[in-house]
Design a protein around this nucleic acid. Structure first.
Length: 215
DNA sequence: TGCCAGGCCCTCTTTAGGGCCTT
């Protein structure tokens, strides 16, 4: 169950389309045998969401009760889903060479790399982490979990968490809000993907100075 | 039955340890 995002005023230039993605998985580590069980993603173009991707996938083994409770995704739901390889081939076509964004991107990147590796596919875009940027822009936030940031920044949501498309849509709203905040606070426009990547790598204490120098 | 990973970041740091964040 999803719904459209409210329109957001464009703050990106035309070349800075990004795909915001989120995996639900059987656990924390693909190197320990964990697999993806759902992928959700939205495409942002010109500062607005223009496309969506959501698909459950069958990892080929029984998932834990913890994951069923955490995500609401049941074993029964996965038994009727297509295998990971089929879904990830479709998803590789969806992301193409777009730049990518995820909340705690190191996690999603590990699974993206692992699942695409199984089918000998790759991607050509960069990867940015909304959590690392939020830690720098919103240093006073009570935490930088996605759900806490959504509440802290009053980001509209339908109350669904830990499902791939819902989390990717909330991450996309957070991403667009961070672009708006940088634009308004530092008079930078357009705010490029490359600039956001740079922000994510700056020491916390020097981010404001760095952004002021970009104006 | 209980536990498992990994990158980032802070500090009582760098010859380390532990919290945060993702499922």
């Amino acid at each position: 169950m999803t719904r459209s995002l409210q329109k957001t005023s464009p703050v990106l230039d035309g070349a800075d389309s990004v795909v915001v993605l989120d995996f639900e998985t059987t656990g924390l580590s693909p190197t320990q045998g964990d697999r993806a069980i759902e992928i959700g993603a939205v495409l942002i173009e010109h500062g607005q969401i223009t496309d969506r991707f959501q698909q459950l996938m069958n990892p080929g083994f029984r998932i834990s009760g913890f994951i069923e409770n955490y995500t609401g995704i049941t074993q029964e739901m996965l038994e009727s889903a297509p295998p990971c390889e089929e879904v990830m081939a479709q998803f590789a076509d969806f992301i193409g060479d777009h730049n990518l964004v995820a909340h705690n991107a190191s996690f999603d990147r590990r699974f993206l790399d692992a699942e695409l590796g199984f089918i000998q596919r790759d991607y050509g875009g960069g990867f940015a982490c909304s959590m690392l940027i939020a830690r720098r822009l919103y240093q006073e936030a009570p935490s930088h979990k996605l759900g806490v940031l959504v509440d802290y920044k009053n980001i509209p949501n339908d109350g669904v968490f830990h499902r791939a498309l819902a989390d990717s849509e909330m991450t996309a709203r957070l991403w667009l809000l961070m672009l708006e905040d940088i634009k308004e606070q530092y008079s930078i426009a357009p705010v490029s993907f490359g600039l956001m990547q740079e922000v994510s790598q700056k020491p916390k204490a020097s981010v404001a100075r760095f952004l002021r120098a970009q104006a």
